[in-house]
């Protein structure tokens, strides 16, 4: 018993009773708005800057190489380089996912495992240009016989190492988030550790792993600094080399194209930089789209 007389008015809404909550809601709404405005500004800048090229000769821009005539110059070499980089980076994903499986499922929880985990986390925060120096020393110089020196292979492997910690961290987190009840259920039915990982843990973790790998590809495609250090060109001239020679020869990528266009003194090249940025954004968006569709399919198969 409260001992007081019930006052019906005490249940009524009081103006200003939740002032702090309303202020907080206002602030987070502003934050969302700010994020939208910034993304919108970037998109507007790119679309508007590239308007002349995208409305008049987009196909030519996509399919021709860099030439000194602004009306004919394109980013075909950059697209080619970026696609090869994306392909090679994807090929290295099993290493990162494998490392994550080891750390989460096999490694015992002791000081050396924790040291590795902390190191991986720190590696994810190392500035990209430092990875460029690593790539220069390892792939361009030491392994010159294999990579051909400042080639697209060296650039791609450097970027693969750059994103490896991100792949490991996101995959490990996705694996850790798999409910223990799935593991218990599988072990309880006589599944081995590998069977449990293959049939329960990995399928359930796959959407999260996909998200991490897509972010990694986007990161790798956007990096210019490490490529600069390993010796990517702004553009290059090529003869009729075969595929292997092209892989080991001079290369460029979309971020390098953008940098090159931006550095040109004549104002007309700004449009090229914007158009190349648009191409890069669309490329990353397409890769995202593939991952989102894949993720949705897996989620549907898992019945969620």
């Amino acid at each position: 018993m409260r001992g007081d007389v019930f006052d019906p008015g005490s249940l009524q809404k009081q103006p200003g009773a939740d002032r702090p909550g309303q202020v907080f809601f206002g602030l987070i709404s502003l934050a969302v708005l700010a994020a939208f405005v910034m993304v919108g500004a970037v998109l507007w800048d790119v679309v508007q800057g590239s308007w002349d090229i995208s409305t008049s000769r987009m196909w030519g821009f996509l399919t021709t190489s860099f030439v000194s005539n602004p009306d004919a110059a394109g980013v075909a070499q950059g697209i080619r380089g970026s696609l090869i980089i994306a392909g090679i980076v994807i090929l290295t994903f099993p290493i990162g996912i494998g490392a994550a499986i080891y750390l989460e499922e096999y490694a015992t929880d002791n000081w050396s495992t924790r040291l590795i985990q902390v190191t991986v986390r720190n590696l994810a925060g190392v500035p990209s240009i430092v990875y460029g120096l690593l790539g220069l020393a390892v792939f361009v110089q030491t392994l010159k016989g294999l990579t051909g020196g400042d080639s697209v292979i060296s650039g791609a492997l450097t970027l693969a190492i750059l994103v490896l910690p991100i792949v490991i961290i996101t995959s490990a987190e996705a694996i850790r988030a798999v409910p223990g009840s799935y593991r218990d259920g599988a072990y309880g039915l006589g599944a081995t550790q590998w069977e449990t990982i293959r049939t329960q843990v990995l399928p359930a973790a796959l959407p999260g792993i996909l998200t991490g790998t897509v972010l990694s590809i986007a990161r790798a495609l956007g990096e210019a600094a490490p490529l600069l250090v390993v010796g990517a060109a702004g553009f290059y001239t090529t003869g009729n080399n075969d595929f292997l020679e092209q892989m080991r020869g001079a290369f460029t990528a979309l971020p390098m194209n953008i940098a090159t266009f931006t550095k040109e003194p004549a104002a007309i090249w700004r449009g090229h930089a914007a158009a190349a940025s648009l191409v890069l954004l669309v490329l990353v968006f397409l890769i995202n789209l593939v991952a989102i569709i894949g993720r949705a399919r897996i989620a549907k198969r898992l019945g969620r």
Partner: peptide
């Protein structure tokens, strides 16, 4: 075989 506290069907 084992049946657990919380029903844990696989997804």
């Amino acid at each position: 075989g084992m049946v657990f506290q919380k029903p844990n069907p696989f997804p």
